[in-house]
């Protein structure tokens, strides 16, 4: 197998089309509405009950970041979980795949399209959190930037998981449901099984995701992320492994 510059150009064309697809679709509107609703509710709670928020979360920013992993998981469910399977189910593959383009270029384009869209939306959310931090705390902690970095790696990992499921199953609805189940409770149940059997489930994706939001401290307003480097490593490995498996499943898949 050889790689040409043209392969990347084609991936860029596919990625652009994926982003356009999502921007014109209903899922994007649903996601925007959910995010705006979540942000508005959190801001209202922070504004009207600031004292109680500080007591529970140590910092207003912690409250906003507490739900970050859910927002990222929802993005993976809405966008990445259908990105491959819909080409087969909706028969659009009959046009795209019969063109002079490597399947790897299609895969990269679709993956990059999802990641770019999810990242932009999460960055916008973080900008909102930064504005809230300025409003409530009067400053922006550097922890917010570290959290953003870890959140980006969580996007890679959840997108990898969702695209892997999307590359294997036959229906978009099945893929969405499986991604939802896997990311929202199967991972947690497995982690719990490890924990109750006396093993630290530090390598599980849901455990690593806890590092996106600051740990609650009662030592003033200091924000602390729990072992962000270790969490980033776990997420990077989850992202890499699931992406490689998804790529393999995709290039072997026949119409």
């Amino acid at each position: 197998m050889y790689i040409e510059l043209d392969d990347f150009r084609q991936s860029y064309v596919v990625a652009k089309n994926e982003i356009r697809k999502f921007l014109r679709g209903r899922r994007f509107i649903i996601y925007i509405l959910l995010t705006v609703l979540a942000f508005s509710l959190l801001t209202s709670v922070s504004y009207f009950y600031e004292d109680r928020v500080l007591l529970m979360f140590g910092n207003v920013v912690s409250l906003y970041l507490f739900f970050m992993q859910i927002l990222i998981i929802v993005a993976a469910i809405l966008f990445a979980s259908v990105v491959i399977v819909s080409e087969f189910e909706e028969r659009t593959a009959l046009v795209l795949f019969t063109r002079p383009i490597k399947k790897t270029s299609i895969f990269i384009g679709k993956m990059v399209g999802c990641i770019v869209l999810e990242t932009v939306m999460i960055v916008v959310y973080y900008l909102g959190v930064a504005a809230a931090a300025l409003f409530f705390d009067g400053h922006i902690s550097e922890v917010l930037f570290v959290s953003l970095g870890v959140a980006f790696l969580f996007i890679l990992a959840t997108t990898g998981v969702a695209i892997l499921i999307s590359s294997i199953v036959k229906k978009a609805s099945t893929s969405t449901l499986l991604t939802f189940a896997f990311l929202l409770f199967i991972l947690s149940i497995v982690s719990m099984l490890f924990a109750v059997s006396g093993n630290d489930p530090w390598f599980m994706l849901d455990q690593a995701a806890n590092s996106i939001g600051p740990t609650v401290t009662f030592e003033g307003e200091t924000l602390i992320l729990s072992e962000p480097a270790k969490a980033a490593g776990v997420m990077a490995i989850w992202g890499a492994v699931t992406t490689i498996l998804a790529w393999f499943a995709f290039i072997k898949r026949e119409f």
């Binding site: 089309n17 356009r20 697809k21 014109r24 679709g25 909706e90 028969r91 659009t92 009959l94 046009v95 019969t98």
Partner: peptide
Amino acid sequence: VETPEFYPY
């Protein structure tokens, strides 16, 4: 090939 579909958007 057969009756392909297009991105409806």
